[in-house]
Simulated scan of single mutants.
Amino acid sequence: MKKPLLAVKDIVQITGITTRALHYYDRIDLFKPTHLTDNGYRLYERSSLEKLQTILFLRELDFSLKEIADIIKLTKQEQKQIAMQQRHALLMKKQRLETIMAALDEFASGKDISDLLLFNNSSVLPLKEQYANEAKFLYGETEAYKVYNETLETLSQDEKQERFAEMEELFKQIATCIGQPPSSNEVQRLIEEWKKYLMQFTACDAEVLKCIAHTYKFDARFQNYFHQFSREDLADFLYRAIIYNIDRTPQ
């Protein structure tokens, strides 16, 4: 003979929902028992299973419990329309997760975090743009930064990428010299090339160069960035090479 009413354990066995979740749904008036026995046991009509299954389905569609409480009050047709609208949100989430997974794979393979496309199509700015904004915040009132920014704005996107690639090539060359003293002729020749690169954008006095050297050495993001060029501490090596170059250069 079929049970006219279902106990909590029956609901758990049929749907897979936990007892804790079922009790919580009761407390927030989302899914209440049909009957409550004198000794406090919850009992449910078999027909109420459809409502619970709808709730569980909507949870899988990533609706909040508050949203679900409103949706289950609607007609079946209205529920279908809202569910289809949610499809677009889920598709966007899927694409976002695919981007995150791709970024994780690239990061694990050694790509620098500043080159990842993780923040594209996000309210969070891409890391390179964050760095640019940070530089503007720190140095935006200085004449050197204003000249740098004005020069940068005259370049096309391809030209910017080309200049960035030139700088990376310099870092790679410097990394091959990491076994030499920072004061060696070869290292200092490359530091002079590095300075010439910066001079394309703005005049770099000793104060600006020291600031850049300090950032290279002590900013963890730059440490991680330089790690792609050498297993040694390239950030510290650059710092020492730049400081030596400043100290030996007549002011």
Results as ranks from 00 to 15, higher is better:
194 W>A: 08
162 E>T: 13
22 L>W: 00
91 L>H: 11
245 N>E: 06
174 I>G: 04
47 S>H: 05
128 K>M: 10
40 G>W: 06
43 L>M: 09
22 L>N: 04
221 R>A: 14
62 D>L: 05
192 E>P: 00
35 H>A: 15
1 M>H: 05
213 A>R: 02
128 K>I: 08
95 Q>M: 11
17 I>M: 11
104 L>H: 09
28 I>P: 06
244 Y>I: 10
226 F>E: 04
246 I>H: 11
71 I>K: 02
77 Q>S: 06
188 Q>F: 03
87 R>N: 14
240 R>V: 02
40 G>E: 12
47 S>T: 07
1 M>K: 05
27 R>G: 02
248 R>Q: 14
230 S>L: 07
61 L>H: 00
217 K>I: 02
45 E>S: 14
164 F>S: 11
233 D>S: 01
156 S>V: 05
153 E>D: 08
71 I>S: 06
144 A>M: 06
234 L>S: 06
171 F>N: 09
116 L>C: 06
49 L>K: 03
55 I>Y: 03
90 L>K: 10
226 F>T: 01
204 C>N: 12
225 Y>D: 11
140 G>T: 10
181 P>E: 15
140 G>Y: 05
91 L>W: 01
163 R>K: 15
52 L>I: 05
127 L>F: 08
167 M>C: 12
34 T>N: 12
54 T>S: 13
237 F>G: 04
122 S>N: 09
30 L>Q: 03
180 Q>A: 13
70 D>Q: 13
31 F>M: 06
19 T>H: 09
225 Y>A: 09
208 V>C: 00
131 Y>E: 15
44 Y>L: 03
216 Y>M: 11
14 I>E: 05
182 P>W: 03
2 K>D: 13
197 Y>R: 13
1 M>D: 09
164 F>Y: 08
43 L>A: 09
197 Y>M: 07
237 F>H: 07
73 K>Q: 14
173 Q>F: 01
167 M>G: 09
137 F>L: 14
30 L>H: 04
181 P>R: 13
238 L>W: 01
181 P>I: 05
140 G>L: 05
197 Y>H: 15
36 L>W: 00
72 I>N: 03
112 D>Y: 01
54 T>A: 10
27 R>Y: 04
177 C>V: 07
138 L>M: 12
83 A>K: 00
209 L>N: 03
22 L>K: 05
32 K>M: 10
120 N>K: 03
98 E>N: 13
12 V>F: 05
11 I>C: 05
231 R>L: 01
75 T>W: 00
188 Q>E: 10
101 M>V: 12
231 R>F: 04
68 I>T: 08
57 F>P: 01
205 D>G: 12
246 I>P: 01
246 I>N: 04
234 L>D: 03
118 L>N: 02
113 I>N: 00
116 L>D: 04
234 L>H: 14
192 E>K: 14
104 L>R: 10
210 K>Y: 13
60 E>S: 13
247 D>R: 07
152 L>S: 10
191 I>E: 02
76 K>I: 09
57 F>T: 14
216 Y>N: 12
64 S>F: 00
18 T>W: 02
52 L>A: 04
125 L>K: 11
